[in-house]
Amino acid sequence: MPDFLAFHNGYLTLSRQAEDYDDIAQKLDGFMDRALLTQQGPFLGPLDESQGSAVRALRSAASSSRRAANECKRRGEVVLDFRADELLWERTYGDYPTTEAPPRPTWTQLWSNT
């Protein structure tokens, strides 16, 4: 199972990529603004359309990456909490008779814990 640090690194990677995509989209806006100011001709129409499509794709990619990053963060917290519960159970009830100890914490998430 990916541990907390793996999820945390995933969160950082995906968040940074989302920022990167937004940065590129911003730059493309600047390029096209400059093109419309300094160039003239019918070729600007198709170019504007292409750049607009790229910007939309980048912003969508940034949004999707952020959603994945947030899921990484959430899973990391779940893993950390579960590990803390397990350790605490071990420390507190590890030497209890089985019949007297409460149930051991169990993994209830639908995603992998193996």
Binding site: A6, G10, L14, Y21, A54, A61, S64, R67, R75, W111
Partner: peptide, 27 residues
């Protein structure tokens, strides 16, 4: 990254990244 975290289903961004890359080359 997503494969390493068993989160391949969260790959919605991949298609958009590919689309943006292709569009930029076409520009």
């Amino acid at each position: 990254t997503l494969i390493g975290l068993d989160m391949s289903l969260w790959d919605a961004a991949a298609a958009e990244i590919d689309k943006a890359a292709g569009e930029l080359l076409r520009s």
